[in-house]
Simulated scan of single mutants.
Amino acid sequence: MNEKVIVRRAERKDGRLWLHVHDAPISLARVTPKRHMLVDSDALAFVYLLEADDCFLYVMVPKPWWPQLKAALDAEEPVWLRCGERTLELEQFHDELSYLLENIRDNANYGETLEQAVQDVFFEP
């Protein structure tokens, strides 16, 4: 069964963007970065995939943390996930995010609300 965790805090520190989540249903020691992202248009969230033996763990990054994503993207800072004392680099995060941003821009297929939210955070001066 697939599980999800929601980022509760994002901070840029020590040249990295740290995405903090509370208790993950799967130990970070058991997951591998899938190097792939999706979008949840209804939740206004970017979703990074982690793979375990028999399921996926969806790391949901909701809109309140998008300004930190943009700043880290602009600064080319690696993105790391933190759950308690465990940490994991979210490999290819910027490549995947950039790809999604370009696909969402001026594309009503993702829904007007998501399209406008992405425009406001990532493309407005």
Results as ranks from 00 to 15, higher is better:
Y58C: 00
P64Q: 09
P125S: 13
E91I: 10
K34G: 01
V118H: 07
K34D: 12
E91N: 09
N103D: 14
N109R: 14
A71Y: 05
L88G: 03
V61I: 15
A71R: 12
H94D: 05
F93C: 05
K63S: 06
F93V: 05
L97I: 11
R8Y: 08
F56K: 07
R82D: 00
E85H: 09
R82N: 04
I26M: 02
F46I: 06
A72I: 09
P33K: 04
V61T: 08
H94Q: 09
R9L: 11
M37W: 10
E3T: 14
A24Y: 03
F123V: 07
E85Q: 10
V59R: 00
R12N: 08
E112H: 05
D14M: 03
T87W: 00
A24P: 10
L28C: 04
L49F: 04
A52S: 14
E51R: 12
H94N: 07
A72L: 08
F46Q: 03
E77S: 05
M1F: 08
L19T: 06
A75H: 11
N109K: 11
E3D: 13
D42P: 03
V79D: 01
V61K: 00
Y48K: 01
W18A: 01
V121N: 00
L69N: 04
V5G: 01
L97P: 05
S27R: 13
E96Y: 02
G84A: 06
Q116V: 13
W18S: 01
L97F: 12
L97H: 10
Y58D: 06
C55A: 15
D42K: 13
G84F: 06
H36Q: 14
L101H: 08
K4W: 08
L81C: 06
D120S: 09
D42M: 07
D54Y: 09
L97G: 04
V47W: 01
Y48C: 01
R86E: 15
V21C: 06
Q68I: 01
E89S: 03
L88D: 05
P67D: 09
T113H: 04
V121I: 15
M1R: 06
D95N: 12
A52D: 14
N109P: 00
Q92P: 00
T87S: 07
P67Y: 08
L28W: 04
H36S: 13
D42W: 02
E112A: 05
F123R: 03
E102M: 11
E96M: 12
R105S: 13
E89T: 03
S98C: 13
E124R: 12
A52W: 01
E124T: 13
W66T: 07
D120Y: 01
S41T: 15
W18K: 02
L50R: 02
W18P: 00
Q92K: 11
